[in-house]
Design a binder for these strands. Structure first.
Lengths: 135, 135
DNA sequence: AATGTAGGTTAAAGTTACTTTAAGTTACAT
DNA sequence: ATGTAACTTAAAGTAACTTTAACCTACATT
């Protein structure tokens, strides 16, 4: 299957502008063009985008993703390096999840803080309590 | 306790430049200055920064965080609104965690993909297998 | 045949959240 | 008196897009 940039945008949830930007940055090498210069995305391009989105979600910068894309072009020689990259990304995601779980606890405290303040009618209910500072 | 910008940077893990930027954006109102114009951060400022970092980690943009800071200045009138904000942020964090858990599964698949390719000596081991596209 | 509209194209400027640089001040130790 | 460490501001640079402007091309409609 082949898709126009608009169809590829709809299928991936990435805007057409961003797809053009990704191509310019070397994340999408070999995107075909028709006689009028119009891009034609294939299923492999969409799968590539799925992996790009995945790497991006782990906090990987575009330039590093580009390096990974370049490694892919090297074929079997870069298998080890690519494997190591994904192991590293797995660790990064796990760290991010742990971070967010800590953040959620702080938010839970704030929810409790406001709930009790609302019940009391004033934030002053927390004033002076050891270490609780109103901001 | 009072801290210079450098000490505040060290205590919060936020660079001095970023602290100046936050002040300029209205995230840190009423930062004291000495006769030479040098900033002096107090514990309440540091606590404020902790909450700012927390909101930022949930994906909240600076301008929205600024609106929250402005709400704080309104006192008890804005308790409900601030409570609603944190409930909303809690939902946002939970969504992000779920997102990352899905991302981790994709990464796990890729780890398996490369592991088996390395064992086989070539990525071709996955060729043609239903839906597995090498990128 | 002309005209509208729904796509596509490029290059360049704008945005967000910083970071870096440049140029200068002030306090303190050698 | 000279160095250096920490502060100051304003402005330029960066990443990852997004938006805008100006243009092309195909196709349906008046």
């Amino acid at each position: 299957m082949e898709y126009s940039i608009g169809e590829a945008a709809e299928k991936t949830g990435i805007t057409a502008s961003t797809l053009r930007y990704y191509e310019k940055e070397g994340l999408l090498p070999n995107i075909k063009r028709d006689k009028n210069g119009i891009r034609s995305f294939c299923d492999e391009d969409l799968e590539r985008l799925r992996i790009i989105e995945c790497l991006k979600a782990t906090g990987m910068p575009i330039k590093d993703i580009r390096k990974f894309i370049d490694l892919c072009a090297d074929g079997d020689d870069s298998l080890q390096e690519r494997y190591a990259l994904f192991l590293d990304r797995k660790a990064a995601v796990q760290k991010q999840i742990e971070e967010l779980q800590k953040i959620e606890k702080v938010i839970d405290f704030k929810c409790w803080y406001y709930q009790t303040a609302i019940e009391a009618g004033t934030e002053k209910v927390h004033a002076g309590k050891n270490k609780i500072i109103a901001i």
